[in-house]
Design a protein around this nucleic acid. Structure first.
Lengths: 146, 146
DNA sequence: GATAAGTGGTATTGTAAATACTTATTAAGC
DNA sequence: GCTTAATAAGTATTTACAATACCACTTATC
């Protein structure tokens, strides 16, 4: 059972953005932080923008900003958006389904139910719950006690 | 969100076997039915055998047989076994984890919880619930009415 | 004109599946 | 009861494909 790296990085980016909901984050900044190419992250951001989770703005001072308050964005919604079109198993796909037992297959319904349970569980958390601290502990004003 | 084809085919094979729990099914027979290579299915069967779900026997009259009654094998157990070693996201992997925010990351716990919900939901069903009919409708003794 | 998002194309990596081959077990035949 | 042949699982290697990531370039906004 696996989520795509798309979803993985998307969640990480949103975690970061949730720490400062009104700030615009450039893809360059976030990509640098996660150690992946800017263009790749751009594609993820585009998807998030299409889904109405972030708003993007070009030009100087631009970047991506959360379109809603962190507590209004559930993890389930994010995962649904970023995993859209990703079938749980082959026979869930609308095209290229080679399964010969589709008709009387009761497995499908049970897998669907489990998938729904997964997403419903994620709906209980929002971005506000997983926001990262604004700056890293090593850069914090108050040094951590040894 | 995606299960590996390993799990997919494993479930299909078990569905088939559950229809006739005491019969030995050869990998050749099942592979032919699903349209994939025998050796590939063999690997899946091996994993199921290691996990104690099926018993295999070589030689004439051999094949794989369910090691337990269909109602004693939950779908969750099967999926846990076949998806073992498959991290939900990269930072779940024990090796090669490049995530820089592991320490204070509360996302991980929430994804784990959702994954558990997925499996728990599947535990509510057993192979007995998803067994396929013994023979295909087209070969049935009583022809279906038009 | 500098900054930053958006787009199209290409390389790379990892998973999935097939091919070819080996080993073990059973059952038939002598 | 031993030998042989057929059956079927197990192993190793290779090939094909799709997901992932990168690069060069374009467009928009300040």
């Amino acid at each position: 059972m696996r989520l795509t790296s798309f979803t993985d990085f998307g969640l990480r980016a949103l975690m970061r953005m949730a720490s400062d909901p009104h700030r615009a984050f450039s893809t360059a900044e976030l990509a640098d932080e996660f150690g992946l190419s800017r263009n790749h992250l751009t594609k993820i951001m585009q998807r998030l923008a299409q889904g109405g989770i972030v708003a993007t703005r070009r030009g100087s001072g631009g970047g991506a900003t959360l379109a809603l308050a962190p507590r209004a964005i559930s993890l389930g919604d994010v995962v649904r958006l970023l995993e859209a079109g990703q079938p749980l198993v082959e026979c869930f796909a609308t095209t290229g389904n080679t399964c010969s037992i589709t008709g009387c297959c009761s497995l499908k319904a049970r897998l669907s139910s489990a998938e729904a349970a997964f997403l419903t569980n994620l709906d209980r958390s929002t971005l506000a719950d997983i926001a990262l601290p604004k700056s890293r502990p090593s850069q914090a004003a108050t040094p951590v006690p040894a």
